[in-house]
Design a protein around this nucleic acid. Structure first.
Length: 319
DNA sequence: GCGTCCAGGTCTACC
DNA sequence: GGTAGACCTGGACGC
């Protein structure tokens, strides 16, 4: 347990339109920084490592979708110096998608028979980003070859056993462990304590690679071309084409057997007979239709399945 | 109660 | 360069 007794506050002014609630508390249940974060009555309490420090965050909206203003309070062990505060504010703005202009995507989406519904339903929802590669990469390893329920159980055990707990503002939030801490663990121990099976070995290999000095940060990957960034991610143990498309800060079009079912119906009117074999064809069609906006199209679609099922008259399976 | 199958991929060996 | 088979674990299913 780490008590975060010091705090500072500021106001964030995201690029409009910005729907705070949809952005920090997404309809499909994707967490912002940790599955243990708490969202109640328009306020989000979450925690992460920001600019190298463990921080707790209390976020709430003080504005509207068209005139957005977000109240941010950052909790830390000790008061950061002005330079570190500035770095935290800059990073958090990027992580919360506050600097993202949705104009180009919305222009494309308004002309698309699928996306025009999604952008109406979720107007102002921004894409958010993790601070580091490790939480996203670890998440994708835990999603592999397991039903979602079991993935969630493995994730909860992994975070609570090896991650730190931030105590602030009357809340206790568990945070993803740092790769340097996981790198020191024996795979057999993780397998036993968290029931990760063969994934435990890959998790430690991943942590060792990411805690070394030569692997780029998410921000450094963002400065590379999308293809170069994906190439670097594919060097990580346990990370293949699907996982790299999820982690890539440039976004990809991550199709697995579940999303193959959804996008097979959306693109071709029926679910594929052999979902694994259909992945390449569905992925190619998504990239052909949406090009550089493929990730945003994927993101908006999977967050809006319930509405799209009704609006398009297609049964899209919800997880 | 018990055996079998398979799940929101990736890696490796083999051709 | 392409592909079959293995991989932990636990829930669903058939008997």
């Amino acid at each position: 347990m780490v008590r975060l007794a010091s705090s500072f506050a500021y106001e964030m002014r995201p690029v409009a339109p910005y729907d705070f609630d949809l952005t920090v508390h997404k309809p499909a249940g994707w967490s912002l920084f940790t599955p243990f974060e708490v969202y109640e009555k328009g306020t989000m309490w979450t925690a992460t490592h920001l600019a190298g420090e463990l921080v707790g965050l209390r976020l709430s909206s003080q504005g509207t979708v068209r005139r957005p203003k977000v109240s941010v309070r950052v909790f830390a062990e000790s008061r950061p110096d002005p330079g570190l505060m500035g770095e935290m504010e800059r990073s958090l703005g990027h992580n919360l998608g506050a600097d993202e202009d949705l104009g180009g995507f919305y222009k494309l989406a308004r002309k698309d028979r699928i996306l025009r519904h999604a952008v109406d339903d979720l107007y102002g929802m921004h894409n958010t980003a993790s601070v580091d590669v490790f939480p996203d990469a670890a998440l994708t390893i835990l999603l592999q070859m397991a039903p979602l329920k079991r993935s969630n159980e493995m994730m909860a055990a992994f975070i609570t056993k090896y991650g730190r707990t931030a105590e602030f503002d009357g809340r206790r939030i568990n945070v993803w462990p740092l790769p340097r801490d996981v790198a020191r663990l024996a795979p057999a121990r993780i397998a036993r304590e968290c029931k990760l099976g063969y994934r435990a070995k890959r998790m430690v290999q991943l942590a060792k690679k990411l805690s070394g000095e030569d692997f780029p940060t998410l921000e450094e990957l963002e400065r590379l071309s999308p293809e170069e960034a994906k190439g670097k991610l594919l060097e990580l143990p346990g990370i293949g084409d699907y996982s790299a498309d999820i982690i890539n800060p440039h976004g990809g079009f991550p199709i697995d057997v579940w999303s193959a079912d959804v996008f097979g119906k959306l693109f071709f009117g029926r679910e594929p007979r052999d979902k694994r074999k259909a992945i390449d064809r569905i992925k190619a069609e998504g990239v052909r239709r949406w090009g550089g906006w493929s990730w945003m199209a994927f993101f908006y679609t999977v967050q809006d399945l319930e509405n799209l099922s009704r609006e398009l008259g297609i049964s899209l399976r919800l997880s």
